[in-house]
Design a protein around this nucleic acid. Structure first.
Lengths: 343, 343
DNA sequence: ACCGAGAATGTAAACGGTTACATCGGCAAT
DNA sequence: ATTGCCGATGTAACCGTTTACATTCTCGGT
């Protein structure tokens, strides 16, 4: 058992109030008294009890991140961004991954009461109603990459549609007319938006449009690999493949090379997200950059400001721009004689 | 503000004790009363307050993971393993990354009191003494991949030394005599052990040993890339490169290819960790597999059992075996005529 | 010597639960 | 009718803090 404030008070021959004042730098305390209290506290290894403190102050200095999954570098990057600003503001981080089970999500959300000061939700398939029904109304919430159907929650989204559009335009600009898309899971909001961007681009540019050009996937390397194998075997093989995230692009790249298909000479390849590892692929992966860590950092920044505003602030929806990052995998960039790429 | 147990009690015309009994399934409650209470609770959206509960029960159902950094797929995998068993046992996860600042670590550790039931420490450069001095003695702790200088803490380590030894042996078996090593940071315990394994293997097999064969690194792709550039420029270029983690191997691979050096034909390459993406490199990366997610899962499993035992259990040190995973990047495996690799 | 104003400190009521113990009925056995 | 027991419920103490308010000290000004 750790020492309590009472034990410190007794040992230092003061009241608990004075000890509390010392530890919170509140109210006047004679410097000699302060010294004595700190000394006793050190000797007794006293540390304030988090739960007790938050019970009365009604703040936990903790925020929770609810995410669907923990696979891959996308999540680790976004967590890194989130952590860095949380950490910088003295907040702790509770992570909760919700394997998409209805009842489980509900239980998770409820368990948050009295544990956190705010919540970042990254589950693309959780609906606003579930949130409202299972969380205290005063809890600040920020939806990250979630569908916002005009709800009253704050949100940040990546410009998935615009990014996908730009990528397809770029590929078309390189002369490709028959561009395959490797899709994400149908329920996933990001995936749907990227698909929409692809379709809009295909339609507006008059590119080949065919159902078989839209290949199923789920954002995993494995799915990308399967899609790659599928493409290898296709009649009327596309000349370019746009995988809607980098993990799938990497799996796909592997499948293509395994089959002896050269990238980008035989087939151009592009991804989405620009995860850190993308630039180290051979060829380096052309992608849509979303500054993942910055996305997380920005989300936490906004959440903390709602926390400070006691959730009584203007709700806002924010869309982060994307940037096309052209590297070797889609051609257009060429390898110099010294082996380096002109990017 | 959320409803409290008192409000539920008043509304349901019972005492708080009865409401508590219903929510904890403890003690007898007439089923009609239970129904009424649950109904009121639902109507008032009552959820027990975490901090209040843990104040009296003295358990938080939360464990904390302290790690040095959040870069790359290694951490995301280990977190995934940790989360999955924590989640399965109804525990929440607090992550804390400690950017190696002394005072900061101390503050972090202290802040844990009253917030968590146990702690997984993954900071290879935190010493046991700091832990003991800043944490309640009764808090269960598990050191993951940390130096355990015969301390009284539970621990799990990967067999870094054995893995590195096996890898160098394998490369030597393929005929390589001049094998470069890309090191991790000097303070990092994993890195040191892998280096030791390399040196022992080099010595016992009578391979070329030279200071310039040990190249600095820090477990990042970027460092691997720099090491690769360095190797490209070296006189007396090694015929094999053993990067002590996969991220560096990937960076190194890129540098080699960029310079027109073929892998594995001109230089063999191997990594360590076997992160999920390793198999999707071209060529697929030979590595030392450590079942990262399982490592995390096992750690959490053991921590939870100490929590249940109230920390009054036998301390144990455990070393997880590694497994050599031979893929294309170090030769030895060859590409079949259909393009696939014989692994 | 006395007064009044701060400064320094103490007292006790919260915060929202859990739980040991007390109370109260009702019913079967005597 | 009395007893004893047990199921259902209530009462109140407690967990470790913070903080409004009360109290006591200290001192300079008169």
């Amino acid at each position: 058992m750790s020492a309590t404030i009472k034990e410190v008070a007794r040992e230092a021959e003061v009241s608990v109030a004075t000890v509390s004042r010392v530890f919170n730098d509140k109210g006047p305390v004679r410097s000699e008294t302060r010294r004595r209290i700190l000394e006793v506290a050190e000797r007794l290894r006293y540390t304030p009890h988090g739960a007790a403190r938050s019970l009365i102050t009604n703040e936990t200095h903790t925020v929770s991140v609810l995410l669907p999954d923990l696979h891959g570098e996308f999540f680790s990057e976004v967590m890194r961004g989130i952590d860095s600003t949380a950490h910088g503001s003295g907040y702790h981080l509770l992570v909760a991954s919700s394997h998409n089970d209805r009842a489980e999500i509900k239980a998770l959300l409820r368990a948050m009461r009295g544990r956190v000061d705010g919540l970042i939700v990254m589950s693309p398939d959780i609906d606003a109603h579930t949130l409202e029904a299972n969380l205290p109304e005063t809890l600040p919430i920020l939806l990250l990459n979630c569908l916002v159907d005009g709800t009253s929650f704050d949100s940040i989204n990546v410009d998935n549609h615009g990014g996908a559009l730009a990528m397809v335009r770029h590929l078309a600009g390189l002369g490709h007319r028959r561009i395959a898309l490797v899709k994400g899971a149908a329920e996933n909001y990001d995936a749907r938006e990227r698909l929409r961007g692809y379709r809009d681009a295909v339609a507006s540019l008059g590119l080949d449009a065919a159902p078989e050009l839209e290949i199923d996937g789920d954002f995993s390397e494995e799915a990308g690999y399967r899609a790659g194998r599928h493409i290898v075997a296709m009649g009327g093989r596309p000349t370019a493949v746009f995988a809607t995230n980098d993990a799938m692009a990497i799996g796909c790249l592997y499948a293509l090379r395994e089959a002896g298909i050269r990238v980008p000479e035989d087939v151009a390849l592009a991804g989405f997200d620009d995860i850190p590892i993308a630039r180290y692929m051979t060829p380096p992966l052309t992608s849509v950059s979303v500054s993942i860590a910055k996305l997380g950092a920005r989300a936490m920044e906004r959440l903390l400001s709602s926390v400070k505003a006691r959730n009584a602030h203007q709700r806002r929806h924010e869309t982060l721009p994307t940037e096309l990052v052209v590297r070797g995998s889609c051609g257009g960039a060429v390898q110099r004689s010294d082996g380096s790429w002109n990017l």
